[in-house]
Design a protein around this nucleic acid. Structure first.
Length: 424
DNA sequence: CGTCCACGTCTAC
DNA sequence: TAGACCTGGACGG
């Protein structure tokens, strides 16, 4: 899910679905999660959300009993708790029937059911890669700047008053991922922003941004094209206005093609790409710019997959659901201590440079041998680690094999799943 | 089967 | 500036 727009839409989703629901009881964490427990156990509470860049703040607010309300309301304030989330690479919120928790549901909030009148639902933070984080009593990270979506003016000022700092002497495409200045921009947005601004991605950021300092309002109004900082606000807004769920190839809604059609550069056929200095793939068109990495590492496009092509084959969703059932037994339990892997060598990727690509046809074997020499040990190590992981997961249980509340256990027999936008 | 890649941070040489 | 942190889909042999 997660760049600024996806976070923002998650917040909308939470507010819409939680508006009509009361929640109750403890907040249940998966056994595998290394994130903090949430100390909360209120009979009745509400949930709301607000976002800032790539962070989302959940606010839990308890509602006192009717009887107490009149007497004690003034003196005893409703209890509230803020939890600040980062989504990592795969975090998202989902709301579904609480019969059985999703495999990678790591933090779960259960609705209140009055005398079994209604089906119990759960709001889950689902995050299969577990790079996501949360912090109870948290506040917005001080390391992150104003939100490109919701704080546009401060966002712009924060950059323009700091353009002289050394961080802005890096390529613009890399600075665009610096959350201290571009809170909410991620890898697909930076590609779209540079592309639409017509700026070579590896041009230094200061030279791109400095001209905006002297730009008068008059100039701005006259110019047809929004400048790059405006694009940082406008493009995320466009994604939101598509009405889908934004970037979300895994759990695609029927409208996902809207998003892929909106993209003009990221992963688009005909566009070029290159790993930046942090090994993140930068998609661009035309001239890469002077600060491009000296070794050009180009990713091969593998990912034509189903994205836009097999829109018609909605049938494929069925097998996927079945697979989830299978997988739900294949996770690891709470004691996955996962002692830090003693890295037995650097784990470098086997990247293919452009030159190597060319040479490959002729000198394939030698290039390969060289690579192999360099990376044999490390690759082996990586392979071993994977193997180990697989073994582990064979003997283990699901992420969501969490200590259930009695209610859940009761409901645990019924096998039924609902996933957002996915009913077949 | 092994390898590469993915919407993002972090911290340790 | 490599790696670690993770799971899993796609692809190649």
């Amino acid at each position: 899910m997660p760049e600024g727009p996806e976070l923002y839409m998650s917040g909308q989703f939470i507010n819409q679905t939680c508006r009509n629901n009361l929640f109750s009881g403890q907040i249940v964490k998966s056994l595998v999660s290394r994130q903090p427990d949430i100390d909360w156990n209120e009979e009745t509470y509400t949930i709301s959300a607000v976002t800032r860049g790539k962070e989302l703040k959940l606010t839990l607010q308890s509602i006192p009993n009717d009887q107490k309300e009149n007497k004690k309301c003034a003196k005893k304030q409703n209890k509230t708790l803020d939890i600040v989330f980062q989504f990592g690479m795969s975090g998202k919120f989902d709301f579904y029937e609480a019969n059985e928790l999703q495999k990678h549901a790591h933090l779960n909030f259960f609705t209140k059911t009055e005398n079994n009148k209604s089906v119990q639902m759960v709001l889950s933070f689902v995050d299969y890669r577990r790079f996501g984080k949360w912090q109870p009593n948290g506040n917005w990270s001080v390391e992150r700047g104003p939100c490109v979506l919701t704080d546009y003016i401060p966002f712009r000022e924060n950059i323009l008053k700091n353009v002289e700092l050394s961080v802005f002497r890096k390529p613009i495409c890399e600075v665009l991922l610096n959350q201290k200045y571009f809170n909410g921009i991620g890898n697909y947005l930076r590609a779209e922003i540079c592309y639409r601004a017509g700026i070579p991605p590896f041009q230094d950021a200061r030279s791109v941004l400095e001209p905006l300092l002297t730009e008068t309002n008059e100039v701005k109004i006259k110019s047809e094209k929004p400048d790059i900082l405006q694009l940082c606000h406008l493009l995320p807004n466009e994604v939101i206005n598509l009405g889908g769920t934004g970037y979300d190839p895994e759990n695609r809604d029927p409208d996902y093609s809207k998003f892929t059609e909106w993209l003009q550069c990221y992963y688009k056929p005909g566009m070029k790409n290159m790993a930046d200095h942090n090994k993140r793939t930068m998609w661009y068109d035309g001239n890469p710019g002077p600060l491009k990495p000296s070794v050009e590492k180009v990713r091969k496009i593998k990912r034509k997959k189903k994205a836009s092509e097999e829109v018609e084959k909605t049938v494929l969703k069925k097998p996927k659901v079945e697979k989830i059932e299978d997988d739900s037994k294949a996770e690891i339990t709470g004691k996955s201590k996962r002692t830090r892997k003693t890295a037995s060598g650097p784990i470098t990727r086997k990247n293919v440079t452009e030159e190597e690509n060319l040479k490959k046809s002729k000198k394939k074997s030698s290039a390969k041998a060289k690579n192999a020499d360099l990376e044999k040990s490390s690759l082996k190590a990586a392979g071993k680690r994977r193997a180990t992981r697989r073994k582990q997961s064979k003997t283990s249980v699901s992420d969501t094999n969490i200590s259930c509340t009695p209610k859940q256990k009761m409901a645990g027999n019924t096998v039924r799943r609902t996933r957002r936008g996915k009913r077949s």
